[in-house]
Design a protein around this nucleic acid. Structure first.
Lengths: 220, 220
DNA sequence: TAGGAAGCTACACGCGTGTGTAGGCCGCTG
DNA sequence: CAGCGGCCTACACACGCGTGTAGCTTCCTA
């Protein structure tokens, strides 16, 4: 545990802010609460960061840089078989998980999300090479959905913890989660035939829709 | 579109509250804003529901009942091949999606989540029957993670919409999403060999951990 | 050593908010 | 028709909050 006493006041404030925002959410967290946690006056907070919103922006920026650095590391070593990249993220992000989860949920951490999508996309490139059948959808789309799915464990950690019976952020939870994910990722929920049928149905529906749209009568 | 003018004042208030909470979040939504939207005075709101928190509880209860009803319907007809149950939910929940997403994200919609887990579990029962290899993890655990993943599209809809290039809540988005999900669900991200190796590694790690825990020295 | 900028504190202001209260209107029942 | 209990409104209160301001200390520099 890095004691925060040796950090500069500015860094201490940012640290405290991320924690308070993470615990209570942006609205419920107060300037004074953050200042107390950082061991400074509330005025200093205003001195270093302009407003509460500016402070939040600074926190977002800090988290983004942390993620960027992490991603760079992951790309650097790139051991194949490292499935649970999100698990790695979660452990490194550590105390900032609550903040990140909240930011993602309220839509404000777009850059972080996109960063992870980028990484997932590169992973899909490798995966697609071993694939024989044609891919019916954009790689970006698949990476986006996969990213959302991966992050859902963090964002919905309350519920996942309850369902698993252990806190997902604990070591036990991580282990159980990893086992579960490996099983889910290795067993398709849909057979290829069912999938093909479904895709056909979807295409049919889409064709029907397009016809409807360009038809003789237009609504409204 | 059901005009809300014919609803009772109490119902109109609840409706307005769900919408306001969904749009702005619980903290930012105001009693007066909800009252205005419902076309009543703010005092009436206090008369029917005791406090802001009580109003929220009533909203939660309403959403829960809606989901329960929906689930019962799904269980009733039970057409196999209906993969995208979540899609169905989303369309029925309709205007309440934002509220539900926010509730799930802040951990307050536990009962709703558990309800969907229950449904997913029953679906897994069917799926497991066609499976030959032994299942290494609890069905509940798998259902929980699957549920979180499914719901992530709603909860992270801002980011998913951005990534897909179309709003997920639109018809186009739904179609693209369905195609993507079918593809992802029908193609394992991990080969069975890789998965087995990963499971072995995890078991090994867990064994090591247990040994460490019951070992001679205990930390701290 | 003088001076000034940066780091930091104490304190007050004003606004928006949830909540409380007094009272008016309407329909039902004796 | 009197009375009364529901819905419903208008208005006031008190508090917490983000923000503003004045001034102190510390340290670097010319």
């Amino acid at each position: 545990m890095t004691d925060q006493a040796d950090l500069t006041a500015r860094a201490r404030i940012r640290e405290a802010a991320v924690l308070e925002f993470g615990e209570h959410g942006y609205e419920r967290a107060t300037i004074r609460g953050i200042a107390d946690r950082a061991g400074v006056s509330s005025g200093l907070l205003r001195h270093h960061f302009g407003s509460k919103q500016d402070l939040r922006d600074a926190c977002d920026e800090f988290i983004l840089q942390t993620i960027r650095k992490l991603n760079a590391d992951v790309l650097a070593d790139s051991t194949p078989g490292k499935v649970n990249y999100i698990g790695t993220i979660r452990s490194v992000i550590g105390p900032y998980q609550a903040y990140l989860a909240r930011s993602l949920a309220d839509g404000s951490a777009g850059l972080v999300f996109d960063e992870i999508v980028k990484l997932t996309e590169q992973w899909l490139v490798l995966l697609d090479q071993e694939r024989s059948d044609p891919v019916p959808v954009d790689r970006r789309a698949r990476a986006t959905v996969l990213t959302a799915m991966s992050l859902s464990i963090s964002v919905l950690h309350h519920h996942v913890s309850r369902g698993l019976g252990v806190p997902v952020f604990s070591e036990d939870g991580d282990l159980l989660l990893a086992k579960t994910l490996v099983d889910l990722y290795s067993h398709p929920l849909l057979s290829l035939e069912d999938a093909a049928a479904a895709q056909a149905r979807l295409d049919e529906f889409r064709a029907g829709k397009r016809e409807r749209e360009t038809g003789t009568h237009d609504e409204r």
